[in-house]
Structures are given as structure tokens and as C-alpha cells.
Computed example of a mutant assay.
Amino acid sequence: MKSKQITRREFVSAATIATASAFTLKSSIAAEPGEEKVPKIDTHLHCFAGTDSEQFPYHAKAPYRPTALATPEHLLSCMDAAGVDYAVVVHPEPYQDDHRYLKHCLDIGGDRLKGTILLFSDRPGSLEKMAKLCQQMDVMAVRVHAYAPDRLPPFGSKELRRLWKMATDLNLAVQLHFEPRYADGFEPLIKEFPKTTVLIDHMGRPFQGTPQEHAKVVRWSRFPNTIMKLSSIPTTRQYPHRDIQPTIRELTNAFGAERMMYGGGFGAETTGESYQQAFARARSLLLHLSENEQNQILGGTAKRILRFG
């Protein structure tokens, strides 16, 4: 019988799974005797109560409406099974600036969870919620989206500057989720507020812009207050089917492990095993760094900057 020949894509896919599996045990970030354990921290996940929740309904302006539940109870169960110490619940757009479900999640999570809030500088009354939300919850950042023509902040306006100033006064980071083509709109505020930590979501979405557009994001590494998040890591099975490894190398060279943090792996279908595998895959993409540098990205940097533990 003639043996079946596997394609290059099938080989790469199998090799990736095997590599992640090989690093499953190592992903627990153990410490040497006498050394402090470096925690595993997921800095980017969403929780959803679903479309049938009367207590926590989606906002009328929700751009999407997930039907599957991703609850804090499920999250904590997966964290326990995967050895994840802490996590950041990023308040998602379906709830807009209604943060009742985020508070519910953080109340259940206790000191293991922190939150990112979502407010709108051009929406009357939205920014006025910021101080009270910080009193009610353990909040570490306010998120700003620039992700589509109909989901943009008012660039160059006094309102967006006010959001940045209020976050600075409340000791919050500003968390940016954007397509690279919108980077120019944020840069003046990054410069104006050099003491305000700026978290860059999802590696600056490198595959959703041209190389020249993403190069502007990489050059933000010259600002010491910018932190790059290794999150929403694409695979070659996803469009545009490009290898993310060269981009990760570029970002680690530019920002260094002390200014990078990992996030990802949790969702409605997550299990403890799949959550652990997500961390293992992230580590397998960081093998060009030392073990200590890998540990910093997988938890140490977030512990220091986001004040966990």
C-alpha cells in the first residue's frame, strides 16, 4: 500500500501541537529553592452572561452579542486547573459603559481578578463614571477602541485628552485596542502623558495593517511608558495565514521582556487543559529568550506593573 504524504501545512500544524504539549509541564513557572515563584497571569480575557441574562443584559449599542456563557465561576475553575494565579477581566464592548457584570465578576474573583473598564470620551456622562468605578472595583485600566470607522474615539479632541488625564489622576493605565492605521491618533497623548502606562492590546494587530503601519506601533517602544501585550496570537490557520514568530521576535527585541505581558486562552469552551496549553504555546513562541525572560512575559511583568499579589 502506498503511504500517504502529508502536506507542509499538516506537518507544521502537528509540530506546533507537539511543541505546545512538550512545554505543558514547564509552563507552571516553578521557582528554584529560596526564590519567589513567578505567578502565571492572564492579562486579557472577557466574561459574558449571555443573551438570556435579565440581570446583566447587553447594551442597546452592543456591536456583537455572544450567546455562550463565559462566567467568572468557569474562569476560576479553569485557572485552578491550569495553575493560573491571577487574571484581568477586560470589560467587553457588548456591555458598553454598563459595568455591572464586570463588578459581579470581580466580586466573585476576589484578589485573583482585576478589571479593565470601557468608557467613551464623546458620550455624555460616560467619563463621569470613572472615579466611582474605581471606588467600587479593583480597576487597573480604561480601554479605548479604534477598530473600525464607526468605532473610533474623537482623535485630537479635548474629550479624549480628558479621558487620558482622568485615567492619569486615578492611577489607571490606558489600554489601546486598535488597528495599526490609527496609531498616529494616539501618539500625541502617549507623549503628553509620559507617566501614564499605555497597554497595547494584541501586539498592535500586526496582520490588520501594512508592515509600514505596524512599524509605527513597534516604534512606540521608544516611549518607556508603553507595554506590549502578547495576546490574541494568530495561527497559520487564520487569515492571512502568516507566521507570527518573526513579529514576536521583533516585539521582544524592541520592548524587552520587562515591558511585555501575556494574555489569552480563556473563553466559553475553555478547559483547564486547554488553558494550560495556551500558556504553553505562548512559551513555545518565546524560546529565543531566556527562561527568566519568558517567565516575566507570562506573569512577572504583569505582577509588577498591574500590582498583583
Rank of each mutant, 00 (worst) to 15 (best):
K216P: 00
M260H: 08
K216L: 03
M260L: 12
F266M: 08
T236I: 10
T252E: 06
R222T: 05
P234W: 07
Q245R: 13
A215V: 02
P211Q: 11
Y239W: 14
T270G: 10
A254G: 01
Y262W: 15
Q238M: 15
E258M: 06
F223G: 01
T247E: 14
I248H: 03
I248F: 03
R259W: 07
A254I: 02
R237E: 15
G256Y: 11
T236K: 13
A257Q: 11
G265D: 09
Q245A: 08
R222G: 05
I233Q: 02
V218C: 12
M260G: 09
P246C: 05
W220R: 00
G256T: 02
T252A: 11
A254M: 04
R237M: 14
L251V: 04
R259D: 10
G265I: 08
Q212T: 14
W220M: 12
R242S: 08
S232Y: 14
T271H: 08
P246R: 11
K229L: 10
P234E: 02
R259M: 01
P240S: 07
Q245D: 09
P240L: 06
I244C: 03
I244K: 01
H241D: 00
T235W: 10
R249D: 13
K216G: 00
H214T: 02
M261T: 14
P224I: 03
M228C: 12
D243H: 04
G256M: 01
V217K: 08
E269T: 01
